[in-house]
Design a binder for these strands. Structure first.
Lengths: 240, 240
DNA sequence: TCGCCGATAATGTATAGACATTAATTAACG
DNA sequence: CGTTAATTAATGTCTATACATTATCGGCGA
């Protein structure tokens, strides 16, 4: 354990908070006190406290001091899956099969509905993700061609549209809605499921600045797929 | 916009990366170059770059320099709902109804299965979350009593077990699995749904250090509930 | 040609001090 | 007594410098 000093200070205070030695709302020592306690400079202490503040563990107020934050509505990190990678890692063969590819003229109502600009052409693509020739998910995507003109000429053989976009288009903001739905007749047919089977439904919209880039709706076979979200420093082994 | 200098440097480089001016894998100027360009000290530049590295936007290598990170399997922030707050915000009345509360002796197989310590008593509680007397979700929870002895005597009238734990127990790590399942007969009865209706299923395990604290399995009524995950700085208005 | 090894260029950590900013406290005043 | 102004204690930013660490590069020798 040869941690740098600011890391050591950070982790000691963090431990005190997480184990309840320091309770929410309580004030912690001033930077000056800590710097005497650890025999180091103020910058070093400040760095440790700033890191804790960034992580939401403490709150710092000028003139008043630093306080242990009250546990708020918290968040976890959700790993957005790269389907291909995940399937290959399972030892299965990945395939994306394009089932539709249309260019919609400017001004279609679908653009508004998806939160995309309605003053340019939209590319509409749909397809199914297969693992070892078993359908795992299907998706339907709208792409703003004014934002990504190269998209229109992509074959999507090596990459699925999502993987291609991820690799080639920088974005600043995204929002996903995750729900559970019963497979409609059309979805059921694509996924070779009985109608009404439960599907994990993900709708994601992506922006660059204020410009909407793409919207995608994915249906995952409920029995075959799940998402994982984590909170915390260490990555726990999957089989534990 | 009176940002501190290190923030300004950070955001300028960030913008370059997000807009594609700096492409993944490309090297950015050395701290020395940047410090000349901005006419400031190296510490200030370093602080900006460290923040970018913390955010995963760049990768820093000694002797080699700093590089724009390749977009990896990325992550989004998933807001873990405080059900009560969410329901009240919708203008509905919240109620949690306890349906079961059992103490399991040490060594039950369920402890192992849930990844909890099997050398102490477990509290098993189950109940249903109501919004305006309509069931919205049901949950079944195991709590390690050796970690949280006070839990056994809680009435769970004001708070649901989850809200109580969140308020009173510090934890360091959590993992959620999110899936879509068909309601079993038992679940369907609790949620007043037809059997087989799609439910959003969340299984969460929580640790303090290496000590498992609790495991919970929640079934949400699919047609009434969804989760939202976000990536990006600004919070977009919900109705947009 | 290959491998080792030292020089070097970059980041990583830390110091001691300066001044800015902010808000809680206290003092002065009407 | 209440309001306003000054003080002051804390964090926030920044500088200039020093030394540590480490991966890369280039050269030297077998």
């Amino acid at each position: 354990m040869n941690l740098p000093l600011h890391e050591k200070i950070r982790s000691e205070i963090e431990a005190d908070i997480l184990t309840g030695v320091r309770t929410p709302g309580s004030r912690l020592p001033t930077e000056h006190d800590l710097m005497q306690h650890y025999g180091c400079s103020r910058m070093t202490v400040s760095k440790a406290l700033s890191a804790l503040a960034d992580g939401g563990l403490i709150e710092r107020r000028k003139r008043a001091g630093s306080f242990v934050a009250r546990p708020k509505a918290h968040s976890m990190m959700l790993d957005i899956p790269d389907l291909e990678q995940e399937i290959v890692q399972r030892g299965q063969r990945y395939r994306f099969e394009l089932s539709e590819r249309t260019i919609l003229p400017p001004g279609t109502p679908q653009a508004r509905e998806a939160g995309l600009a309605d003053d340019g052409e939209l590319l509409m693509i749909a397809g199914v993700h297969f693992a070892d020739d078993v359908p795992l998910a299907c998706e339907s995507r709208l792409v703003c061609l004014s934002a990504v003109p190269e998209m229109a000429s992509q074959p999507f053989r090596a990459d699925s549209p999502g993987a291609w976009l991820l690799k080639h288009v920088p974005w600043t903001e995204a929002e996903s809605r995750i729900a559970s739905v019963a497979a409609s007749a059309g979805i059921a047919a694509q996924l070779k499921l009985p109608a009404g089977a439960p599907c994990l439904f993900v709708e994601r919209r992506t922006w660059r600045g204020n410009e909407g880039i793409t919207q995608v709706r994915q249906h995952f076979v409920g029995s075959a797929y799940s998402l994982v979200a984590r909170f915390g420093p260490a990555k726990r082994a999957a089989d534990f």
